[in-house]
Computed example of a mutant assay.
Amino acid sequence: MAESDAQHQPKHPRHIAIIMDGNGRWANARGLPRTVGHQRGAEAVRRTVEASIDLGIGYLTLFGFSSENWKRPKMEVLDLMGLLRRYLKSEIVELHEKGVRFRVIGDRVRLDSDIVKLIEQAERLTKENSRLVLTIALSYGGRDEIVSTSRRLAELVAEGALKPDQINEQMFGEALETADIPDPDLLIRTSGEKRISNFMLWQCAYSEYVFLPTLWPDFGKDQLSEAIDEFCQRDRRFGAAVG
């Protein structure tokens, strides 16, 4: 990106991505089952979506379930899938009424067929909405997305439909699941952990990172505003020289 382009980037983030971390620790600190932490985390999702609408955010991407999360205890995974079902059944109509477009990225093969059907129904219902684009990353891993995209491009080369020297950053980005949305301006992680855990590795190459100590079930408009305020104080140069 040219220096002049960087200088004219909007200060307010257009796209915010969030790694929602801390449900289990929130529950453990209160002597409650982890399931309760996940339930409270779902409430935080609702608050964050509403806050994003109020604050004029155009795109919100939430890391709901990683490809590595399948390694968690079976009962916890079942509880999370049950919570996902309830969310898809109870929240989508309201999201639609608020003008939110709902979409999912990630490997749907490992999801139960009824969940995939609910996702497809939600995406169809809300596809024309534009007030906020809400993307949920489910069974998602950044490395897996890059590998899968590379494999698809390699297949095109093998078929003779694409030449290797035609592959560039723009083409690669347009082959990702997130091709129809801008890259995140701001990546937030809750719970005090300071890593991105295989989330949107390609897309977050130039994102600003904000790590908050707040556990996800306690996250809401105040914390979102705090992260945005910090973002607005950053000098985003995209590799351009200082001064």
Rank of each mutant, 00 (worst) to 15 (best):
K194L: 09
A17C: 12
F238T: 07
P213Q: 06
L212F: 03
E174R: 15
K74Q: 14
V36I: 15
A161T: 03
R124P: 00
L187N: 04
L201Y: 07
W26V: 12
V157F: 09
G31Q: 06
S130L: 01
S66W: 07
S139Q: 02
L187A: 04
R47F: 04
T126L: 09
Q223L: 03
R46S: 11
V100M: 02
I228R: 05
Y59K: 03
A29G: 08
K98N: 14
R131I: 13
I105N: 02
S139A: 15
I53R: 14
A2N: 13
T190C: 08
V77D: 07
D222F: 04
I18F: 08
S52L: 05
N168M: 01
M1F: 10
T35P: 00
Y206G: 00
A175D: 04
V45E: 01
L83I: 15
T135V: 14
S139H: 04
R151F: 01
G192C: 11
G58Y: 05
T35N: 05
A137I: 06
R143K: 13
G58S: 13
Q203R: 14
P10A: 13
R152E: 13
R72E: 06
V210S: 05
V77G: 07
E193R: 14
T214W: 00
R30E: 04
E91F: 01
F199H: 10
D235A: 08
D144G: 02
H8I: 11
